[in-house]
Simulated scan of single mutants.
Amino acid sequence: MKKMTDIPESPRWNMVEDVADYLLLMLDVTLPVNPLELLQNFSGKIYTYQELAEQCDMRISDVCDEFDSDDGGLWYNTKTQEYVVAYNHLVCPEGRVRWTLAHELGHIVLGHLEDFPQTRLSNFTVTPEELKVLDQEANKFASEVLAPAALLFGLADKAQNYTEEFYYALSRYVCHLSCQAAFYRAKSISARQSSIARKLRRLPPYAKTYFSPYIDQYAWTASQTANSSTWLHSFSDEFSQMSKTSIS
């Protein structure tokens, strides 16, 4: 039996990023990522909130209340040893649904309901602080799976454009993130460019080979400038609006 340890006091950022990258490589995931397809590799059953509402003769708002979330939830069936995921496919935008699914996948792959005694259903004693750490790890996993740092930095390096605005445009256009997710991903990548560059230099050949086709596929971004690119202009306007309304 696997030995359980306590929930860490702070998120394990590097470990989470490595796990997400390893998953993409080992499953040879096609970009942009379809998190629903990925979940089917790890979850026994996946329901929409609407399906649960119909099965249980409830309103969708009641299902949201049961999960304490308008977006989704996860539980582990100890009898069947299967994960069960539920998500609200009616929320907008679509990027928010993709993020929810990737977030729940993160909880599964990172062993959040199996590795820690606090999260076992027979002894669910998670504190708000511990839950925050687990959610931060799941969000980190979602961001790396949906918008890999190696891909975004590789494209920016190809274009010699390392601005937050450009990372935002790539996150939206290439990775299909929602506006909010793309905004925070752009800021995160921009702040970590030096460490990402060092990490990329240490990547094994097979990992570099995985991202190379996608970098080549979008290599045309290298010839685009803020003055000539219509697609970049539209995302620049979005980024400007997000900068005004989001809390950094």
Rank of each mutant, 00 (worst) to 15 (best):
Q40A: 04
R96S: 15
I60D: 02
Y49F: 13
C64Q: 11
Q40H: 08
Y49D: 09
E37D: 13
Y47I: 07
L38A: 06
G72V: 06
F116L: 09
V97W: 06
N41W: 03
D62F: 00
I108L: 05
D65Y: 09
Q55W: 04
G111R: 10
E104T: 00
V91H: 03
G111Y: 08
F67C: 10
E66C: 08
Q55N: 09
F67T: 06
A53E: 07
T100K: 04
E104L: 10
C92P: 00
P117V: 03
L74Y: 10
Y87E: 13
W99H: 10
G106V: 07
D57W: 08
K45L: 10
T80R: 06
R98K: 11
V109H: 01
Q118E: 15
F116C: 11
L38Y: 02
D65M: 05
T80E: 11
E37V: 08
G73W: 07
G95F: 06
K79V: 04
A86Q: 05
M58A: 12
D71I: 01
Q118G: 03
G72L: 03
K45E: 15
R96E: 13
E66G: 03
F67R: 01
K45G: 00
G72M: 04
V84K: 02
T100M: 12
V63R: 04
N77M: 02
P35L: 09
Y47L: 07
S61I: 07
Y76L: 11
D65W: 03
H89E: 13
D68H: 07
D62R: 13
N77F: 04
T48V: 07
T100E: 11
W99C: 10
V97L: 14
S43E: 13
D57L: 12
D115N: 14
N77K: 00
R98A: 14
